[in-house]
Design a protein around this nucleic acid. Structure first.
Lengths: 204, 204, 204, 204
DNA sequence: GATGAATGAGCGTTCATTCAT
DNA sequence: CATGAATGAACGCTCATTCAT
């Protein structure tokens, strides 16, 4: 019987192998044989640790999502504005430090659209990311004395970030615009928001 | 002898069939047999009109891109601000009127990342969309008397729009935030831009 | 209604086209489309002039066989020994003047082994070639005053020639050995044959 | 864990199955499904043991070539003349004991003409066969005190043998002529060769 | 646990043949 | 007569998955 750590290690090996193969060839084209080879394991082992190929994809999605969230922890404890700037730049640095990761996400989103198991995990990841932004935005709005629809603001920020990464990876574009634009979006939203001490004018 | 339009019609049939099947099952999972059946044609005909499956995907990408651009023509001739607002809402209305189209784009982007033939067409579509936004942004900046980096602004707008559509389709989110946020982004960018008549204060 | 000459011309066009394509790709790999293209005709026309692909192969076999026989007519009227030498060299010159032809024969023999219609034509060609050699050998044996089994001798000569061409085309070998050897074979057969005026010693 | 011999056995099964099917239907017409069925295996297994169909054909060619050479070993150790007679009759007995084998060779030669991988193996087989004949011819020429171009002689012998087998299998002919003729060829070549002890008369 | 042989369905693609125009 | 669109069976090959060892 393997120690629990060995199971985790084998699973992690296979998850990384899927990421590696999938980033270059896509999920469907990543064959079990190739994944096993990239992991240095026998093909038959894949089905010992995962019931099927889709479960492996779900595990990778969870893994990448957890990593992403962990990375954002670095912004904890900063002042509101600095924290939001940090969150934005941490997001956008994905494509520099981890080119494979972005490729994986593109494939995952495509699969999420028609595999409920993947879609659910992806939706959870988005929810978590958004909630981090909500917290940061709330703190900033409070510091600026504004009443902001932070849910919508966070969704918009994430959309700008995600869109910027995707388009940058697949269709190029001017360099470094996303960070600037993300902050302009924050300022634009804050400028349009009513002052916190005059709620009666909010709807105006 | 078949009329010339016959060929175009058959090709269009097959392109629509691919869109239909692909939106629900993805590109790889859309088999030639299924596509042919969705088009009401014999399987062998697919390769009579397209050299291979990838060429059909490229044709669909071109077709969807052309449709998208055509839709934006509706904003022609409006005043700067109205035109930009119209462009934004035309983009964002894609998911309402054409749910299949959004699903197709998700799959196309995933394929564009590793099929050069698809990637080139997609990059061309993005370029065209961005140039429409550049024109509109330039007109607006001029009307407001601001000096704007319109390339970066257009890229950011498109990123926000594309990200909003994608995340909305795959992970939900608050309703209708994207249009509001897009305009906040525009205002934020304009607010941060120097006045056109006082270039010396640009860096201020 | 086409004039008879047009029918013949179209058929000849297609036969030459098959030869051309088949020499390089083999019979099975020579598609109707390709053959038609090589002939400069529409694909559908092939089945106007030949009931099916095999009939086209049979026609080509007949055509090549007839050409081969015609070529041998050049040796008519020569003295016995010169005539046989000429026949041998005419056979062996096939690979120099018509490289495609040899390639076709290799494919035809392979098909002849399992298509009766082709096999029959091929057998007829061999019979005709052999009978030319029989005539020449008979004349030579008579001139030398020997009683030769000319059927066996002609078969052996043809075997040597055909084997030499085939092996030369597919596996190389010393240059020009076949002509020398063919004549050595003739002399060897004649030397082993009894004198025509002492038939009683033939079986010795 | 399968024993190493298991792999060899499966490969041999498939090679024999290809020989069986190919002799009757040709290489192109021998479908993977049919070959697998003839071997009593599942269709998918063929590509488990051979990368593709052509590799299976190459393996068969190597196998038949090796068998042919092994058969010739029976002539080892005989006196020069007896050895050569034995080599000739061993070659020519192919069509009696192994009708399938001859059919396979016809197909292989046709494929060798346009598949380099097959052509190379076939050329190697011919080379080996010829070198056996060279050795035997050399010994015989020495015993007879003659200076013979043994390379050319061996090539001619092989051509006569191969041509005789091929024509016999596809177009009939008088029975048993080839062995007689092969020996007549040998005697004819020896008769035309200069004496070994009078090299100055070689050109005479 | 670990292996890789085995299965058979399904893939993209090719093709000879037919036939409406 | 001539065209090439249309058909659907069959091809080589890949694959996730299973399972005996």
């Amino acid at each position: 019987m393997p120690r629990p750590s060995q199971v985790s290690q084998r699973r992690a090996q296979l998850i990384r192998a899927l990421a590696q193969v999938m980033a270059q060839q896509g999920y469907e084209a990543a064959s079990i044989r190739e994944i096993a080879q990239a992991a240095g394991l026998a093909p038959g082992l894949v089905h010992h640790y995962f019931p099927d190929k889709e479960a492996l994809l779900v595990a990778l999605t969870e893994d990448l999502g957890a990593q992403w969230l962990t990375r954002l922890d670095e912004a904890e404890g900063l002042a509101p504005e600095a924290r939001l700037r940090r969150l934005i730049s941490l997001h956008l640095s994905v494509d520099e430090a981890r080119p494979d990761e972005l490729g994986c996400w593109l494939q995952i989103i495509a699969e999420a659209a028609r595999r409920p198991s993947v879609g659910a995990v992806w939706a959870g990841v988005v929810l978590s990311l958004r909630s981090r932004l909500v917290v940061a935005l709330t703190a900033l709005a409070e510091a600026r004395g504004r009443t902001l629809d932070v849910e919508a603001g966070a969704a918009a920020l994430l959309a700008l970030i995600y869109g910027g990464l995707t388009l940058g990876a697949t269709a190029g574009g001017p360099p470094g615009y996303a960070a600037t634009a993300a902050w302009a979006l924050v300022e634009g939203l804050l400028a349009a928001a009513p002052s916190a001490d005059s709620p009666s004018q909010a709807a105006g």
